[in-house]
C-alpha cells in the first residue's frame, strides 16, 4: 500500500490515535479512583492538620475525622468542631481570591477567636515557586498558635518566617508580596466571619 495515499494516512492516523488513547484510558481508569481519593482526602487532611491532630495514613485520617469531629452550623456558618484536651477547637473551611485564582483552605481557632490554632491549604493556583509557597511548612507554621489582637498583619522581616507568636503578625513570602497580601486578607475575612458567628453563641 502506498504510504502517502489518502486512505493510508487516514487509516494510520486513526489506528495510532486509537491505540494511544486506548492505553491512556486504561491507565486513567486504573488510577482515577486514587486521584479522586487524593482530592477528597486533601480537605479532610487540611481540617485535621489545621486543628493540630496527627495521623499516619489516609485510613487513620478518615477514621479520626469521622470519630472526633462534629459538623455544626452556627448562625449560618459551617464549623467542624473538635474537643482537644478539654478545649473546643473550631475549624472553618475558607475560600477566597488569591492573585490568580481561588485559594481554599482550613483555619482552626479557639472558641473566642483570639488565637489561631493552625491553618492548612486545600487548593491554590498561585505561581509555582513564588506565591505557590504558601503551601510550604515554614509559612503555615507562622500561623500556629498566633495570638490575635484585632486583625492579622503582614510584616517583612527579610528572614524566613516570624517566630513571635504574640505580635499578631506573619512574615510575607519573599518575592510574592501580592499573594501574601491576598492570603492575609482571606485569613482576616475568615476570622471576621468566625467571630460574628461565634459571638452570639
Amino acid at each position: 500500500m502506498n504510504k502517502e495515499s489518502k486512505l493510508y494516512v487516514v487509516l494510520f492516523t486513526f489506528i495510532i490515535s486509537f491505540i494511544f488513547i486506548f492505553v491512556l484510558s486504561l491507565i486513567n481508569a486504573y488510577t482515577i479512583e486514587k486521584i479522586e481519593l487524593n482530592r477528597e482526602f486533601s480537605k479532610v487532611k487540611a481540617i485535621l492538620s489545621s486543628a493540630g491532630i496527627q495521623f499516619f495514613d489516609k485510613k487513620d485520617a478518615l477514621e479520626k475525622f469521622n470519630n472526633l469531629f462534629i459538623k455544626k452550623n452556627i448562625n449560618g456558618v459551617d464549623f467542624y468542631i473538635v474537643d482537644r484536651e478539654g478545649k473546643e477547637i473550631f475549624v472553618y473551611v475558607f475560600s477566597g481570591n488569591g492573585l490568580w485564582g481561588l485559594i481554599e483552605g482550613a483555619i482552626a481557632t479557639n472558641k473566642t477567636v483570639d488565637q489561631i490554632i493552625g491553618i492548612e491549604i486545600i487548593a491554590q493556583n498561585e505561581t509555582p515557586g513564588l506565591g505557590g509557597r504558601i503551601e510550604e511548612e515554614w509559612f503555615k507554621e507562622q500561623f500556629k498558635n498566633e495570638k490575635l489582637s484585632g486583625s492579622l498583619k503582614l510584616i517583612y522581616t527579610g528572614k524566613q518566617g516570624d517566630d513571635d507568636k504574640t505580635n499578631s503578625a506573619v512574615d510575607a513570602i519573599t518575592g510574592a508580596t501580592l499573594t501574601s497580601k491576598f492570603f492575609v486578607k482571606i485569613i482576616n475575612d475568615s476570622i471576621e466571619i468566625m467571630r460574628s458567628a461565634l459571638r452570639s453563641e
Binding site: 494516512v9 494510520f12 492516523t13 494511544f20 491507565i27 487524593n38
Partner: peptide, 30 residues
C-alpha cells in the same frame, strides 16, 4: 509514519508520555 502527518504523530506520541507522567504524579505524589 506518512510524511503528511509526521508532526502530528510526533505531538501525539509526546503528549501520550507526558500524560502518563502527569497521571503518575497526580496519583502517587499529589
Amino acid at each position: 509514519i506518512p510524511g503528511k502527518v509526521r508532526m502530528m504523530i510526533q505531538v501525539l506520541v509526546i503528549s501520550f508520555y507526558v500524560i502518563i507522567v502527569d497521571i503518575f504524579l497526580k496519583a502517587f505524589v499529589s
